[in-house]
Design a protein around this nucleic acid. Structure first.
Lengths: 368, 368
DNA sequence: GTGAAAGCGCTAACAC
DNA sequence: GTGTTAGCGCTTTCAC
């Protein structure tokens, strides 16, 4: 492996007095018709020269790299690390390699990475899309390029997609608060142009509606992270300020907690708090926090599975009725939220996706 | 980019009635001697065919991939994500790509990934080593392979290394506790066969020694994460149990907090707590936690810089006096730790590495 | 200004 | 059982 003078297959062939093809056979474990002696000679030459195959050359020839690309929003976030971890494990297990990239929610970076990964000849892509590159996504379907979308769905784009049941998650969290006696419930999410966020608001509204509670726009905030605190402050000075707050994801929660800590606002005493998501420090908070856990690892695994299936079968299923796999999460009650009932009502518990045939659970997020 | 029928440079050449070499010139922006007309024809052909170059073929020819490999212990941990993030940003900026792998502290995985990355012809490697693959590491020096070690150093291996000043960090944290009146101070780290952990204990012992406080082995625990809680429990039942505890890293802290929460042990009231590291939830704990912050991002950046320098210069500096770059962190006091003094003594504050010439700060971790 | 030709390191028919 | 040959898609002299 010495720099600039790595041995090649050719060198091995020379050094062991056989032809390149024989060495190639050896490398690909096709020993069947190979004399034990040849095999031994090749073996010896290989480790004498410290030979390591050049995968690039092999890939060029075989037109397949056994590598997939994964494009996530930001590796500093929990969802991304967990999901990529699961994808990696699955791929590793199936002898695929993974190249991970960050978009930072920037469509131009997304485009750039997609192009570079394709140039690098990855066999397929798993993407948490910025949702702002329609022409790019459209090319996937036109070209039947193997791809799986993750966490966010896009209307009118017949591409296999793995998401969580955001509407359901939010519905359950909201209902939990309602069941505990809350009526003035607020929700905060990052900007809602992305399906997962819009859906969380949708589920929230559905729960209110189903319980005959009026929907009040001043309780619904979709803001950039850096504007979350002022928005929250504003909301809490309303005459009839909310008695409960749904944090739309981990980042929003951190902002909310910062603000509350700084201003001596306690939960659940001053305001009930539920996180539609999960963080690793719930147990260490002054009061344990109720969260909603999604099977992120399983989602990643499923996405990887779907992608490798496409790659291996050559079927990209880019059809109008393409796959949509929805995973359900479940409420994790760590503390009564200030109301009378100690536990969530049984029917509100989320069910787990059972995860074998993706087609069967198409669009079941409407089934609450 | 259509699957199985991507256009090649050859196709572009045909379609625009020029030779492959001319197209290649075009792709490499060597327009100098190219007629505007030819250029236009090639341009047209390229986007008509949706041509995308095949980087594999180029790399095979050029014997360089503009890609580096990064091998970290576990992407689920903060240090790894931050450091890889910084590496990526730096590389992205210098038109290098990055492939990230996880060892999970498993030497066999480490070996496997190193080999696969080399087979993929990466131009160099940044590694947080498991420290259990000496033959592998030795090969790097023998072969002058461009590599930078990160976070952990290994005796007798003349390879460029970027670490933090663990001894100093720990010394400062310990001194901080001493300055606040503590004498019975304990420390817990993961297993100490890895330099960073051994050094944290070393710094702790140095601080005690310098203050004339006896070192008591029963206050020093290096345990596997899953044995941290029982060890802690044992320590806290000692007759003269410690009044202060240094958590050797984030994982240990989580265990400690779990145990404390569960048993109603408060900090700093029942025991003072300082983390030689950082976590993202310090501000949300029941009592703010004093931590020691390391410039992880800058470490990653520096490692990337050193690697790209090696790659570009062809110098691997695998000499006995190879580079050792040490970064210092600084104490972040969030709460008085139970003793009389409200602030750490000024001379205990860590200094920042100023980071231009790596050689100048060789071994300055002994300079406390 | 542009083209022909060789070759990067490997695989895969197909001969022998 | 093993060797010959062609070629993957690109770059790069060196002619013309």
């Amino acid at each position: 492996m010495a720099k600039g003078k790595r041995a090649t297959l050719s060198d091995v062939a020379k050094s062991s007095n056989v032809s390149k093809s024989t060495v190639s056979q050896y490398l690909n474990h096709r020993y069947e018709y190979m004399s034990a002696e040849t095999k031994a000679r090749i073996e010896a030459a290989i480790d004498e020269l410290g030979y390591q195959p050049n995968i690039l050359a092999r890939s060029l020839k075989q037109k397949t790299t056994a590598t997939i690309g994964v494009i996530v929003a930001n590796l500093l976030h929990r969802f991304s690390t967990e999901v990529t971890r699961a994808i990696e494990d699955y791929c590793h297990h199936h002898d695929y390699h993974v190249i991970i990239c960050n978009t930072d929610e920037d469509p131009s970076k997304e485009k750039k990475y997609v192009e570079m990964l394709i140039a690098k000849q990855v066999d397929g892509l798993i993407i948490v899309p910025t949702c702002n590159n329609m022409e790019l996504y459209q090319r996937f379907v036109d070209d039947h390029y193997p791809v799986v979308f993750l966490d966010r769905k896009m209307e009118g784009l017949p591409l296999p997609t793995v998401v969580m049941d955001n509407i359901g998650s939010s519905y359950i969290c909201t209902s939990h608060l309602i069941a505990h006696g809350h009526e003035r419930i607020a929700i905060m999410t990052p900007p809602r142009h992305i399906s997962s966020r819009a859906e969380r608001i949708e589920g929230y509204e559905a729960a209110l509606r189903d319980h005959g509670i009026p929907i009040r726009p001043e309780y619904i905030k979709s803001t950039r992270i850096d504007e979350a605190i002022p928005e929250l402050a504003r909301m809490l000075t309303l005459e009839d300020r909310p008695t409960a707050l749904l944090a739309g994801n981990d980042l929003i929660l951190m902002e909310v907690l910062s603000y509350m800590m700084e201003n001596g606002i306690r939960f659940p005493e001053d305001i009930a708090l539920v996180l539609i998501d999960d963080v690793n420090f719930t147990d260490f908070l002054p009061s344990p926090l109720t969260t909603f856990e999604h099977p992120v690892g399983r989602m990643g695994r499923k996405a990887a599975e779907m992608l490798l299936d496409q790659i291996k079968s050559g079927q990209t299923t880019a059809s109008p009725d393409s796959q949509l796999v929805v995973f359900k999460g479940s409420l994790h009650v760590r503390k009564s939220c200030g109301g009378p009932l100690p536990e969530p009502l049984a029917f509100l518990q989320g069910e787990e996706e059972n995860g074998t045939d993706p087609n069967e659970r198409q669009a079941n997020e409407g089934s609450l």
